[in-house]
């Protein structure tokens, strides 16, 4: 009975997505077209990539990594700055730079049990200052003369694989691989145990600091990949790229059924959450609702979903005392 309920819980988000498709169709004739659906996917691809990493932080009981936007910007800037080394090496440098921040987060939260929200908030603040200071508050431009590494770099966001843009393929790949990692690996299993009860995970012989570190590394990796795409899209690297993605990603993760308190959910649900956000945004755009008001709606959705989760926990929580 319970497992049936939880299965509906995961599928439920797809029910919401279907509902939104119907609503969208009512709002506009042009809504349910292949090209508009591609627009929706394109619009949420960055979010999906960030969410695929954020999900691991939430799943393992650490709520959210608020430094992911800073990591996105940082990996983008470093990639652009390293372009003289060649595109491949530059991409590696960018991802390594982003992951080094994630490694620091994971180390401090895993070993010293820092509060993940406060710690990553501080890191985000620090990183912003660091980037502005180092690059003197300037944007960093790649050299985009045809044939150069920079030219190839800005092409990343604009390339297709078959009928689909590269970024959509990357998002689907990362969510898919994330699903496998979450359910089929030792790391994924141990993350769930830690998310359910860190103390019990410790007394089960799980190497908690190491696994927590990995969770933040995975999140930083995803954010770095997203950072490369967003930098490629903007054709420049700058400290504020990525702002707002932390909250949107947690929202997608949480409405996708990953409990904010950890230990529950999966990537399939996260994909559903990402799609719902994309559809919602798209419909609101069709209805000519400005982006500020869209933010208000996203905020309300988050509050309602978290409220429902907490309510369900409390109702089912007689076991806790």
């Amino acid at each position: 009975m319970r497992s049936l309920l939880s299965r509906i819980g995961t599928l439920g988000i797809y029910g919401v997505a279907l509902l939104l498709l119907a609503v969208g169709r009512l709002v506009s004739i042009d809504f349910l077209t292949v090209s508009n659906m591609l627009t929706v996917l394109n619009g949420v691809a960055l979010l999906g990539i960030v969410a695929s990493g954020m999900a691991f932080v939430t799943y393992s009981g650490h709520m959210a990594d608020l430094s992911l936007p800073a990591i996105m910007a940082f990996s983008g800037i470093i990639t652009v700055a390293s372009l003289p080394l060649g595109l491949g090496l530059a991409l590696l440098c960018g991802i390594a730079a982003g992951m080094s921040v994630g490694g620091l987060n994971g180390f401090v939260v895993g070993r010293f049990r820092a509060n993940p929200i406060l710690w990553t908030l501080a890191v985000a603040f620090f990183m912003e200052g660091f980037m502005r200071f180092t690059w003197s508050n300037n944007q960093v431009y790649p050299d985009i003369t045809p044939g150069s590494a920079g030219h190839a770099f800005i092409g990343i966001f604009r390339s297709d694989i078959g009928p689909l843009p590269l970024i959509i393929v990357v998002m689907l790949l990362m969510l898919g691989i994330g699903q496998l990692i979450m359910t089929q690996t030792r790391f994924g299993r141990e993350s769930r145990y830690i998310g359910s009860s860190r103390a019990a995970a410790e007394t089960s012989g799980i190497h908690v600091p190491r696994v927590v570190m990995m969770n933040f590394l995975v999140a930083a990796f995803a954010a770095s990949v997203a950072g490369i795409f967003i930098t490629s899209m903007n054709k420049l690297g700058v400290f504020y790229l990525g702002q707002g993605y932390e909250f949107q990603a947690v929202t997608a993760v949480v409405i996708g059924g990953v409990m904010l308190s950890g230990g529950r959910g999966n990537m399939l649900g996260v994909l559903g959450g990402v799609l719902v956000i994309g559809l919602l945004t798209n419909i609101m755009t069709f209805m000519a609702i400005t982006s500020f008001r869209q933010n208000i709606v996203t905020g309300i959705v988050f509050i309602v979903v978290v409220g429902l989760q907490q309510y369900r926990l409390r109702v089912g929580g007689r076991s806790d005392q």
Partner: peptide, 16 residues
């Protein structure tokens, strides 16, 4: 507090 994962099923606890 330390021994069991109260929100996880019996199976996951035994396998933890």
């Amino acid at each position: 507090k330390e021994g069991l994962f109260l929100r996880l099923p019996i199976s996951r606890n035994i396998l933890s």
